[in-house]
Amino acid sequence: MIAALGRAARVKTSNLMYGFGFFFEVLRETLHFFRRSQVGYKVLINQILFTGYEALAINAIMAVSIGAAINVIGSSLLPQFGQSQLMYTILIIVITRELGPLLTAFVITARSGTAIATELGTMVVNHEIEAYLAVGLKPISYLVVPRFIGVVVSMIVLTIYFNMFGLLGSFIVVQLVKPIPINEYLSNLLSILTVGDVLSGMAKALVFGIVVSVVATFQGFSVNRSSTEIPVAGIRAVGQSFILIIVADVLVTLMQYA
């Protein structure tokens, strides 16, 4: 029993160390990417198109809906406490600091995290990774780094996009309940929005982007030789990303408010 526990702990520790090694190798290769990896640019562009551009619509719909929902709930609840003026503060804090990066990260995990893990897993099973090695392309430089950069850049841009549409959704509801000119709405928002709010959201977007891309690529490469391992890699990528995103969210929030 104790021996089995010891073995399990040793395997877990070894996997964890391997994961950290993978992460630092990705960071190291990222520094060299723009200097030497012209052949990886196409992979990078494709990744940004898939993760960023193609997720714009779903992100916009979600942001508008969430912004509207926050406004509906706030405008019915806050007046009961005589705190209607807090509506803009709540909007800014909830959307830019919390839900913007968090929900965007969940969308990217569900779309791109699974896609990356299963695509890389399929490439492993079909010996395509070995073929890259054979022609002199390092899989981390050529396959992982463009996906890493693509997901991080897309995550940041999509978070900004989510924030804009979230606040727009709120404006649409305001127009239905108590119409005000857009100038007044925007000036109310901007008077409350601080640099800290924006930086907080961007910091989370950066961290979440790193988490999703590294976990997905790591899980993709963890596929060994069987096609049945591929969906498992996709599921693990989603599960681990969700957990790590929430943990990272708490840590970044604690750092901001501590």
């Binding site: 695509e119 490439m123 079909n126 010996h127 395509e128 070995e130 073929a131 890259y132 054979a134």
Partner: peptide, 9 residues
């Protein structure tokens, strides 16, 4: 490669 291992994409 025995099974060609071409890049499918």
């Amino acid at each position: 490669f025995q099974d060609a291992a071409l890049w499918a994409n």
